[in-house]
Write a protein that binds this DNA or RNA. Structure first.
Lengths: 196, 196
DNA sequence: TATTGACTACCTAATGGTAGGTAGCTTACT
DNA sequence: AGTAAGCTACCTACCATTAGGTAGTCAATA
Protein backbone atom coordinates (compact mmCIF):
# COMPACT_ATOMS: atom_id res chain seq x y z
CA UNK A 1 0.00 0.00 0.00
CA UNK A 2 1.19 3.45 -0.82
CA UNK A 3 0.27 5.94 1.87
CA UNK A 4 1.72 8.91 0.05
CA UNK A 5 -0.68 11.03 -1.84
CA UNK A 6 0.51 10.68 -5.41
CA UNK A 7 0.54 13.99 -7.16
CA UNK A 8 0.50 13.51 -10.91
CA UNK A 9 3.15 15.19 -13.02
CA UNK A 10 0.41 17.18 -14.67
CA UNK A 11 -0.68 18.61 -11.33
CA UNK A 12 2.91 19.26 -10.33
CA UNK A 13 3.40 21.26 -13.51
CA UNK A 14 0.35 23.34 -12.72
CA UNK A 15 1.52 23.88 -9.14
CA UNK A 16 4.93 25.07 -10.22
CA UNK A 17 3.46 27.19 -12.99
CA UNK A 18 1.05 28.82 -10.54
CA UNK A 19 3.82 29.65 -8.11
CA UNK A 20 6.06 31.04 -10.84
CA UNK A 21 3.35 33.27 -12.26
CA UNK A 22 2.38 34.50 -8.82
CA UNK A 23 5.96 35.40 -8.13
CA UNK A 24 7.22 36.70 -11.44
CA UNK A 25 4.44 36.84 -13.99
CA UNK A 26 3.36 34.81 -16.98
CA UNK A 27 6.05 36.06 -19.33
CA UNK A 28 8.74 35.06 -16.86
CA UNK A 29 7.33 31.57 -16.58
CA UNK A 30 9.46 29.31 -18.80
CA UNK A 31 9.18 25.67 -19.72
CA UNK A 32 12.80 25.20 -18.70
CA UNK A 33 12.18 26.53 -15.23
CA UNK A 34 9.05 24.44 -14.73
CA UNK A 35 10.89 21.34 -15.91
CA UNK A 36 13.70 21.86 -13.42
CA UNK A 37 11.35 22.35 -10.51
CA UNK A 38 9.21 19.36 -11.44
CA UNK A 39 12.29 17.23 -12.01
CA UNK A 40 11.86 16.32 -15.66
CA UNK A 41 13.24 17.68 -18.93
CA UNK A 42 11.72 20.50 -20.92
CA UNK A 43 10.16 18.52 -23.78
CA UNK A 44 8.43 16.25 -21.28
CA UNK A 45 6.39 19.24 -20.19
CA UNK A 46 4.98 19.43 -23.67
CA UNK A 47 3.90 15.83 -23.43
CA UNK A 48 1.38 16.87 -20.76
CA UNK A 49 0.38 20.19 -22.25
CA UNK A 50 0.43 21.14 -25.92
CA UNK A 51 1.98 24.58 -25.34
CA UNK A 52 3.00 27.18 -22.80
CA UNK A 53 -0.25 29.04 -23.35
CA UNK A 54 -2.19 25.87 -22.59
CA UNK A 55 -0.43 25.63 -19.24
CA UNK A 56 -1.40 29.21 -18.53
CA UNK A 57 -5.01 28.54 -19.42
CA UNK A 58 -5.13 25.42 -17.21
CA UNK A 59 -3.58 27.24 -14.27
CA UNK A 60 -6.02 30.12 -14.38
CA UNK A 61 -9.03 27.86 -14.88
CA UNK A 62 -8.06 25.71 -11.92
CA UNK A 63 -7.45 28.80 -9.80
CA UNK A 64 -10.79 30.30 -10.68
CA UNK A 65 -12.60 27.02 -10.01
CA UNK A 66 -10.98 26.77 -6.61
CA UNK A 67 -12.48 30.10 -5.54
CA UNK A 68 -15.87 29.32 -6.99
CA UNK A 69 -16.09 25.94 -5.24
CA UNK A 70 -14.85 27.22 -1.90
CA UNK A 71 -17.35 30.05 -1.88
CA UNK A 72 -20.20 27.88 -3.14
CA UNK A 73 -19.61 25.58 -0.19
CA UNK A 74 -19.40 28.46 2.25
CA UNK A 75 -22.61 29.98 0.96
CA UNK A 76 -24.46 26.65 1.04
CA UNK A 77 -23.61 26.17 4.72
CA UNK A 78 -26.50 27.89 6.47
CA UNK A 79 -24.86 27.75 9.87
CA UNK A 80 -22.27 30.27 8.71
CA UNK A 81 -22.89 33.96 9.38
CA UNK A 82 -22.04 36.52 6.68
CA UNK A 83 -19.08 37.54 8.82
CA UNK A 84 -17.78 34.00 8.78
CA UNK A 85 -18.31 33.66 5.07
CA UNK A 86 -16.46 36.91 4.53
CA UNK A 87 -13.63 35.67 6.71
CA UNK A 88 -13.45 32.50 4.66
CA UNK A 89 -13.20 34.61 1.55
CA UNK A 90 -10.17 36.34 3.01
CA UNK A 91 -8.41 33.02 3.65
CA UNK A 92 -6.51 32.63 0.36
CA UNK A 93 -5.50 36.28 0.42
CA UNK A 94 -4.16 35.83 3.93
CA UNK A 95 -2.36 32.68 2.90
CA UNK A 96 -0.63 34.16 -0.12
CA UNK A 97 0.31 37.22 1.84
CA UNK A 98 1.86 35.06 4.55
CA UNK A 99 4.10 33.45 1.96
CA UNK A 100 5.24 37.02 1.37
CA UNK A 101 6.36 36.51 -2.20
CA UNK A 102 3.08 35.39 -3.74
CA UNK A 103 0.17 37.55 -4.81
CA UNK A 104 -3.14 36.79 -6.48
CA UNK A 105 -2.62 34.99 -9.78
CA UNK A 106 -5.19 37.08 -11.57
CA UNK A 107 -3.77 40.26 -10.12
CA UNK A 108 -0.47 39.46 -11.76
CA UNK A 109 -2.12 38.51 -15.03
CA UNK A 110 -4.11 41.74 -14.94
CA UNK A 111 -0.79 43.57 -14.78
CA UNK A 112 0.50 42.04 -17.96
CA UNK A 113 -2.95 41.94 -19.51
CA UNK A 114 -2.11 43.53 -22.86
CA UNK A 115 0.43 40.88 -23.71
CA UNK A 116 -1.64 37.86 -22.70
CA UNK A 117 -3.15 35.40 -25.18
CA UNK A 118 -6.83 36.07 -25.75
CA UNK A 119 -7.91 32.86 -24.05
CA UNK A 120 -6.24 33.78 -20.78
CA UNK A 121 -7.54 37.34 -20.97
CA UNK A 122 -11.06 35.98 -21.06
CA UNK A 123 -10.69 33.85 -17.95
CA UNK A 124 -9.04 36.68 -16.03
CA UNK A 125 -11.92 38.87 -17.08
CA UNK A 126 -14.42 36.29 -15.81
CA UNK A 127 -12.46 35.99 -12.59
CA UNK A 128 -12.70 39.70 -11.88
CA UNK A 129 -16.38 39.83 -12.78
CA UNK A 130 -17.19 36.81 -10.66
CA UNK A 131 -15.49 38.28 -7.58
CA UNK A 132 -17.21 41.62 -7.95
CA UNK A 133 -20.57 39.93 -8.21
CA UNK A 134 -19.89 37.50 -5.41
CA UNK A 135 -18.89 40.24 -2.99
CA UNK A 136 -21.95 42.23 -4.00
CA UNK A 137 -24.15 39.19 -3.32
CA UNK A 138 -22.58 38.68 0.08
CA UNK A 139 -23.06 42.35 0.96
CA UNK A 140 -26.71 42.12 -0.02
CA UNK A 141 -27.14 38.96 1.99
CA UNK A 142 -25.49 40.47 5.06
CA UNK A 143 -27.51 43.64 4.74
CA UNK A 144 -30.79 41.73 4.56
CA UNK A 145 -29.86 39.78 7.66
CA UNK A 146 -28.89 43.07 9.31
CA UNK A 147 -25.37 41.95 10.17
CA UNK A 148 -23.65 44.29 7.75
CA UNK A 149 -24.41 47.96 7.79
CA UNK A 150 -22.89 50.35 5.31
CA UNK A 151 -23.58 53.64 3.67
CA UNK A 152 -22.41 53.42 0.08
CA UNK A 153 -23.65 51.47 -2.91
CA UNK A 154 -22.98 47.74 -2.89
CA UNK A 155 -21.36 48.02 -6.29
CA UNK A 156 -18.89 50.70 -5.22
CA UNK A 157 -18.05 48.81 -2.07
CA UNK A 158 -17.54 45.51 -3.84
CA UNK A 159 -15.25 47.21 -6.33
CA UNK A 160 -13.26 48.86 -3.59
CA UNK A 161 -12.94 45.76 -1.43
CA UNK A 162 -11.78 43.49 -4.20
CA UNK A 163 -9.40 46.08 -5.60
CA UNK A 164 -8.02 46.77 -2.15
CA UNK A 165 -7.32 43.08 -1.60
CA UNK A 166 -5.54 42.83 -4.93
CA UNK A 167 -3.52 45.95 -4.30
CA UNK A 168 -2.95 44.93 -0.71
CA UNK A 169 -1.18 41.75 -1.73
CA UNK A 170 1.09 43.71 -4.03
CA UNK A 171 1.79 46.26 -1.35
CA UNK A 172 2.47 43.59 1.28
CA UNK A 173 5.03 41.91 -0.93
CA UNK A 174 6.79 45.08 -2.00
CA UNK A 175 6.96 46.30 1.58
CA UNK A 176 7.93 42.84 2.75
CA UNK A 177 5.20 43.18 5.33
CA UNK A 178 2.83 40.18 5.25
CA UNK A 179 0.76 41.76 8.00
CA UNK A 180 -0.33 44.56 5.72
CA UNK A 181 -3.20 42.54 4.31
CA UNK A 182 -4.66 42.60 7.82
CA UNK A 183 -4.83 46.39 7.66
CA UNK A 184 -6.90 46.06 4.52
CA UNK A 185 -9.11 43.39 6.04
CA UNK A 186 -9.60 45.56 9.13
CA UNK A 187 -10.59 48.50 7.01
CA UNK A 188 -13.05 46.36 5.06
CA UNK A 189 -14.61 44.90 8.18
CA UNK A 190 -14.91 48.32 9.79
CA UNK A 191 -16.62 49.69 6.72
CA UNK A 192 -19.32 47.08 7.22
CA UNK A 193 -19.90 48.18 10.81
CA UNK A 194 -20.60 51.83 10.10
CA UNK A 195 -23.63 52.07 12.41
CA UNK A 196 -22.10 53.88 15.28
CA UNK B 1 13.11 79.76 -35.18
CA UNK B 2 11.86 76.35 -34.20
CA UNK B 3 8.48 76.42 -32.52
CA UNK B 4 8.27 72.70 -32.01
CA UNK B 5 9.13 71.40 -28.59
CA UNK B 6 12.07 69.14 -29.23
CA UNK B 7 11.80 65.90 -27.31
CA UNK B 8 15.19 64.33 -26.94
CA UNK B 9 15.68 60.75 -28.02
CA UNK B 10 16.48 59.89 -24.44
CA UNK B 11 13.11 61.19 -23.28
CA UNK B 12 11.37 59.42 -26.13
CA UNK B 13 12.93 56.14 -25.06
CA UNK B 14 11.70 56.67 -21.53
CA UNK B 15 8.21 57.56 -22.76
CA UNK B 16 7.97 54.44 -24.88
CA UNK B 17 9.46 52.28 -22.14
CA UNK B 18 6.96 53.64 -19.63
CA UNK B 19 4.03 52.90 -21.91
CA UNK B 20 5.27 49.40 -22.67
CA UNK B 21 5.77 48.51 -19.03
CA UNK B 22 2.39 49.92 -18.07
CA UNK B 23 0.77 47.83 -20.76
CA UNK B 24 2.72 44.59 -20.68
CA UNK B 25 5.23 44.63 -17.87
CA UNK B 26 8.99 45.02 -17.57
CA UNK B 27 9.91 41.59 -18.86
CA UNK B 28 7.87 42.18 -22.01
CA UNK B 29 9.66 45.44 -22.66
CA UNK B 30 12.32 44.78 -25.30
CA UNK B 31 15.01 46.99 -26.79
CA UNK B 32 13.81 46.00 -30.24
CA UNK B 33 10.29 47.18 -29.55
CA UNK B 34 11.46 50.47 -28.04
CA UNK B 35 13.75 51.07 -30.99
CA UNK B 36 10.93 50.56 -33.48
CA UNK B 37 8.60 52.91 -31.67
CA UNK B 38 11.25 55.59 -31.26
CA UNK B 39 12.35 55.22 -34.86
CA UNK B 40 15.96 54.19 -34.40
CA UNK B 41 17.82 50.88 -34.38
CA UNK B 42 18.29 48.67 -31.37
CA UNK B 43 21.97 49.36 -30.65
CA UNK B 44 21.29 53.09 -30.68
CA UNK B 45 19.13 52.61 -27.62
CA UNK B 46 22.22 51.38 -25.82
CA UNK B 47 24.04 54.54 -26.78
CA UNK B 48 21.64 56.50 -24.55
CA UNK B 49 21.37 53.93 -21.76
CA UNK B 50 23.99 51.37 -20.75
CA UNK B 51 21.50 48.51 -20.39
CA UNK B 52 17.85 47.49 -20.32
CA UNK B 53 17.88 47.58 -16.54
CA UNK B 54 19.18 51.15 -16.62
CA UNK B 55 16.17 52.14 -18.74
CA UNK B 56 13.91 50.53 -16.18
CA UNK B 57 15.58 52.37 -13.34
CA UNK B 58 15.33 55.70 -15.17
CA UNK B 59 11.65 55.18 -15.98
CA UNK B 60 10.68 54.36 -12.40
CA UNK B 61 12.74 57.19 -10.96
CA UNK B 62 11.16 59.71 -13.31
CA UNK B 63 7.70 58.34 -12.54
CA UNK B 64 8.23 58.56 -8.82
CA UNK B 65 9.62 62.08 -9.07
CA UNK B 66 6.60 63.17 -11.05
CA UNK B 67 4.26 62.18 -8.23
CA UNK B 68 6.43 63.69 -5.56
CA UNK B 69 6.70 67.02 -7.35
CA UNK B 70 3.03 67.23 -8.24
CA UNK B 71 1.97 66.55 -4.65
CA UNK B 72 4.60 68.84 -3.19
CA UNK B 73 3.18 71.64 -5.30
CA UNK B 74 -0.38 70.81 -4.33
CA UNK B 75 0.46 70.72 -0.64
CA UNK B 76 2.39 73.99 -0.82
CA UNK B 77 -0.61 75.80 -2.30
CA UNK B 78 -2.51 76.97 0.78
CA UNK B 79 -5.58 78.00 -1.17
CA UNK B 80 -6.32 74.33 -1.91
CA UNK B 81 -8.65 72.43 0.41
CA UNK B 82 -7.81 68.83 1.38
CA UNK B 83 -10.62 67.71 -0.92
CA UNK B 84 -9.00 69.51 -3.80
CA UNK B 85 -5.59 68.09 -2.99
CA UNK B 86 -7.09 64.62 -2.83
CA UNK B 87 -8.77 65.17 -6.17
CA UNK B 88 -5.45 66.24 -7.64
CA UNK B 89 -3.93 63.05 -6.33
CA UNK B 90 -6.54 61.05 -8.22
CA UNK B 91 -5.69 62.78 -11.50
CA UNK B 92 -3.00 60.42 -12.82
CA UNK B 93 -5.07 57.39 -11.83
CA UNK B 94 -8.04 58.84 -13.70
CA UNK B 95 -5.87 59.59 -16.68
CA UNK B 96 -4.34 56.15 -16.96
CA UNK B 97 -7.71 54.54 -16.46
CA UNK B 98 -9.14 56.64 -19.27
CA UNK B 99 -6.51 55.29 -21.62
CA UNK B 100 -7.96 51.93 -20.64
CA UNK B 101 -4.87 49.91 -21.38
CA UNK B 102 -2.48 51.55 -18.95
CA UNK B 103 -2.21 50.99 -15.23
CA UNK B 104 0.13 52.33 -12.56
CA UNK B 105 3.75 51.63 -13.46
CA UNK B 106 4.63 50.56 -9.95
CA UNK B 107 1.54 48.38 -9.73
CA UNK B 108 2.82 46.42 -12.69
CA UNK B 109 6.33 46.24 -11.30
CA UNK B 110 4.94 45.06 -7.98
CA UNK B 111 3.34 42.19 -9.87
CA UNK B 112 6.61 40.97 -11.29
CA UNK B 113 8.51 42.00 -8.20
CA UNK B 114 10.40 38.76 -7.61
CA UNK B 115 12.06 38.86 -11.01
CA UNK B 116 13.07 42.52 -10.93
CA UNK B 117 16.67 43.72 -10.55
CA UNK B 118 17.40 44.83 -7.02
CA UNK B 119 17.80 48.46 -8.00
CA UNK B 120 14.28 48.65 -9.41
CA UNK B 121 12.83 46.76 -6.46
CA UNK B 122 14.17 49.44 -4.17
CA UNK B 123 12.57 52.32 -6.03
CA UNK B 124 9.23 50.50 -6.25
CA UNK B 125 9.47 49.92 -2.53
CA UNK B 126 10.12 53.61 -1.94
CA UNK B 127 7.21 54.47 -4.21
CA UNK B 128 4.76 52.39 -2.19
CA UNK B 129 6.08 53.69 1.08
CA UNK B 130 5.93 57.29 -0.06
CA UNK B 131 2.31 56.97 -1.19
CA UNK B 132 1.20 55.33 2.02
CA UNK B 133 2.83 58.08 4.03
CA UNK B 134 1.59 60.85 1.81
CA UNK B 135 -2.02 59.71 2.02
CA UNK B 136 -1.69 59.37 5.78
CA UNK B 137 -0.36 62.92 5.99
CA UNK B 138 -3.23 64.23 3.90
CA UNK B 139 -5.76 62.39 6.07
CA UNK B 140 -4.22 63.90 9.17
CA UNK B 141 -4.25 67.33 7.64
CA UNK B 142 -7.88 67.01 6.57
CA UNK B 143 -8.88 65.69 9.96
CA UNK B 144 -7.24 68.57 11.78
CA UNK B 145 -9.02 71.03 9.55
CA UNK B 146 -12.27 69.12 10.17
CA UNK B 147 -12.99 68.56 6.50
CA UNK B 148 -12.40 64.82 6.59
CA UNK B 149 -14.17 62.67 9.09
CA UNK B 150 -13.54 58.96 9.40
CA UNK B 151 -13.71 56.17 11.90
CA UNK B 152 -10.73 53.90 11.32
CA UNK B 153 -7.03 54.39 11.79
CA UNK B 154 -5.25 56.62 9.32
CA UNK B 155 -2.78 53.87 8.57
CA UNK B 156 -5.44 51.31 7.70
CA UNK B 157 -7.29 53.81 5.57
CA UNK B 158 -4.19 54.93 3.70
CA UNK B 159 -3.32 51.32 2.99
CA UNK B 160 -6.80 50.56 1.76
CA UNK B 161 -7.12 53.66 -0.40
CA UNK B 162 -3.80 53.20 -2.15
CA UNK B 163 -4.32 49.50 -2.64
CA UNK B 164 -7.82 50.10 -3.95
CA UNK B 165 -6.52 52.58 -6.50
CA UNK B 166 -3.85 50.14 -7.66
CA UNK B 167 -6.31 47.28 -7.87
CA UNK B 168 -8.92 49.54 -9.40
CA UNK B 169 -6.73 50.33 -12.37
CA UNK B 170 -6.15 46.63 -12.96
CA UNK B 171 -9.82 45.90 -12.63
CA UNK B 172 -10.80 48.74 -14.95
CA UNK B 173 -8.49 47.48 -17.66
CA UNK B 174 -9.48 43.85 -17.37
CA UNK B 175 -13.17 44.75 -17.40
CA UNK B 176 -12.56 47.26 -20.17
CA UNK B 177 -14.46 49.72 -18.06
CA UNK B 178 -12.50 52.96 -17.59
CA UNK B 179 -15.30 54.31 -15.41
CA UNK B 180 -14.60 51.77 -12.72
CA UNK B 181 -11.92 53.88 -11.13
CA UNK B 182 -14.68 56.38 -10.37
CA UNK B 183 -16.44 53.77 -8.25
CA UNK B 184 -13.28 53.44 -6.22
CA UNK B 185 -12.85 57.19 -5.95
CA UNK B 186 -16.49 57.51 -4.86
CA UNK B 187 -16.04 54.89 -2.19
CA UNK B 188 -12.89 56.62 -0.93
CA UNK B 189 -14.55 60.02 -0.81
CA UNK B 190 -17.59 58.63 0.96
CA UNK B 191 -15.42 56.97 3.56
CA UNK B 192 -14.08 60.42 4.42
CA UNK B 193 -17.59 61.79 4.95
CA UNK B 194 -18.71 59.27 7.54
CA UNK B 195 -20.33 61.79 9.86
CA UNK B 196 -23.95 61.22 9.02
C1' DT C 1 2.55 -5.80 -27.51
C1' DA C 2 0.64 -1.26 -27.20
C1' DT C 3 0.65 2.71 -24.42
C1' DT C 4 2.53 5.89 -21.24
C1' DG C 5 5.90 9.07 -19.96
C1' DA C 6 10.01 10.17 -20.20
C1' DC C 7 14.43 11.15 -22.89
C1' DT C 8 18.25 13.25 -26.41
C1' DA C 9 19.09 16.12 -30.08
C1' DC C 10 17.77 19.65 -32.61
C1' DC C 11 15.30 23.86 -34.91
C1' DT C 12 14.07 28.70 -35.52
C1' DA C 13 13.27 33.09 -33.68
C1' DA C 14 14.21 36.55 -30.51
C1' DT C 15 16.74 38.40 -26.66
C1' DG C 16 20.33 41.69 -24.45
C1' DG C 17 24.51 43.21 -25.70
C1' DT C 18 29.18 44.22 -28.39
C1' DA C 19 32.44 45.80 -32.05
C1' DG C 20 33.46 48.85 -35.17
C1' DG C 21 32.33 52.27 -38.37
C1' DT C 22 30.39 56.88 -40.16
C1' DA C 23 28.06 61.31 -41.30
C1' DG C 24 27.67 65.75 -39.47
C1' DC C 25 28.30 69.25 -36.21
C1' DT C 26 31.49 71.96 -32.75
C1' DT C 27 35.42 73.51 -31.07
C1' DA C 28 40.35 74.92 -31.08
C1' DC C 29 44.36 76.31 -33.14
C1' DT C 30 47.30 78.23 -36.69
C1' DA D 1 39.20 81.81 -42.42
C1' DG D 2 40.67 77.03 -42.92
C1' DT D 3 41.46 72.85 -41.08
C1' DA D 4 42.16 69.23 -37.93
C1' DA D 5 40.43 66.85 -33.81
C1' DG D 6 36.77 65.26 -31.30
C1' DC D 7 32.17 64.53 -30.08
C1' DT D 8 27.22 63.14 -30.93
C1' DA D 9 23.95 60.11 -32.47
C1' DC D 10 23.21 57.02 -35.17
C1' DC D 11 24.29 52.74 -38.21
C1' DT D 12 25.45 47.49 -39.86
C1' DA D 13 26.97 43.16 -38.58
C1' DC D 14 27.51 40.05 -35.29
C1' DC D 15 27.58 37.16 -30.85
C1' DA D 16 26.03 34.05 -27.10
C1' DT D 17 22.06 32.68 -24.83
C1' DT D 18 17.55 31.34 -24.26
C1' DA D 19 12.88 30.93 -25.72
C1' DG D 20 8.97 27.74 -27.31
C1' DG D 21 8.51 23.86 -29.83
C1' DT D 22 9.46 19.32 -32.88
C1' DA D 23 11.19 14.64 -34.18
C1' DG D 24 12.46 10.51 -33.04
C1' DT D 25 13.94 7.15 -29.48
C1' DC D 26 13.60 4.21 -25.46
C1' DA D 27 12.16 1.82 -21.24
C1' DA D 28 8.76 0.47 -18.13
C1' DT D 29 4.20 -1.07 -17.46
C1' DA D 30 -0.45 -2.91 -18.00
Amino acid sequence: MNNKIEISTKEKILDVALETIQKCGFSEMTLQNIAEQVGIKKPSILYHFPSKNAIGVAVVKRYHEYFKNAMKQAMADNTKTPWEVLDLYFTPFRQYSKQADRVCLCGVLASEYESLPEEIKNIVNEFFQWHHEWIETLLEHGQKEKVFSFLHSKKDLAAMFFSALQGGLLSARVSNNPGEIENIINAIQNTLKSDH
